[in-house]
Nucleic acid binder design. Structure first.
Length: 292
DNA sequence: TGCAGTGTTGCTTC
DNA sequence: CGAAGCAACACTGC
């Protein structure tokens, strides 16, 4: 579900709510969510008593830095939601104490529930059970290969158009797939790659090695534009993304091609948006604006 | 009923 | 050996 803007929205929400809180309790009905340490009991034991220092994001990972040099990493994968609030259990189900957007549906899929020292809680809801939680020593996480190998952050000030060109010229393959490769550039998934390519007027099938310098510059600008708009609008909730309070994002007003197959392109008004398969995923584009 | 799905990984094949 | 392709993960909703 979440791509960079959605994860960023979640991270900002967590920072406002759980800083300085101390982990005192843990509940789970799907312990496989915890991947590290291997043993759930060990995870629970090591987490207990740790204080939240700050929450940040790398690619689509939420990282909660803790006292004593620990970091809790959570990846929401396709359908995970991180929520904060208070819940109580009724006949085996978690019920939100608050009225409003944290409705019953999302609560049904809570598989991991952390309790803090002040009685507030952080829940990981995930109807597909793909999300993962890992407890690391912070320095080990930062030195781990899977972390080091991640591509640059597209919204970093240091991520210049020159860096973008360098990163892309090293690769080959369909530009759509390369954009979604977290080891090439971080945080871009199926929605924002489709949107960026539409803004840049680039055909998603085009091989990255065939992109002109001009096209690379357009794509660089488009990637930053759609991601920044996504963050500003607090994410895309076309599917089921919600922020930590269960609220929807507003990026849907900006959605130009994703899941719009058959609709007239809003820019050229001469062609209908196509849906095709690239690398096993659906890609959406305007065959007129984004000629091969 | 069948299939697609916001992501990533790891296995197989070339 | 590297790259590419694809199943697997597990479940809901159209």
């Amino acid at each position: 579900m979440p791509e960079l803007p959605e994860v960023e929205t979640t991270v900002r929400g967590l920072n406002a709510k759980i800083r300085n809180r101390i982990f005192v309790g843990l509940w789970s009905d799907w312990k496989k969510t915890v991947k590290k340490p291997r043993s759930f009991a060990q995870f629970e034991k090591e987490l207990h008593g740790k204080k939240v220092q700050r929450v940040w994001r790398r690619a689509k990972n939420v990282i909660i830095d803790l006292s004593e040099g620990y970091s809790l990493l959570i990846h929401q994968k396709m359908a995970g939601h991180l929520l904060v609030g208070r819940w109580h259990q009724e006949s085996g189900r978690w019920i939100s104490d608050e009225r409003g957007p944290l409705d019953e549906k999302i609560n049904l899929y809570i598989h991991l529930l952390f309790t803090f020292d002040d009685g507030s809680m952080m829940a990981l809801s995930d109807y597909r059970k793909f999300a993962k939680a890992e407890l690391w020593k912070t320095d080990e996480l930062l030195r781990s290969p899977e972390f080091i190998q991640l591509g640059p952050e597209p919204l970093d000030k240091q991520f210049t158009v020159e860096k973008f060109e360098t990163v892309f010229h090293r690769k080959r393959g369909k530009v759509k797939q390369v954009l979604m490769d977290p080891y090439v550039i971080a945080g871009i998934g199926n929605i924002y790659s489709s949107e960026a390519l539409w803004w840049a007027k680039i055909n998603p099938f085009k091989d990255v090695s065939q992109l002109s310098k001009k096209e690379l510059a357009w794509l660089y600008t488009a990637v930053q534009k759609v991601l920044a708009a996504g963050v500003k609008l607090r994410g895309e909730s076309f599917a089921d993304y919600r922020d930590v309070h269960g609220k929807k994002g507003e990026f849907d007003t900006e959605r130009k091609v994703y899941k719009r197959e058959g609709e007239l392109c809003s820019r050229c008004k001469r062609a209908k948006i196509l849906r095709v398969k690239i690398g096993g995923r659906s890609a959406f584009y305007c065959p007129y604006c984004q000629k091969a």
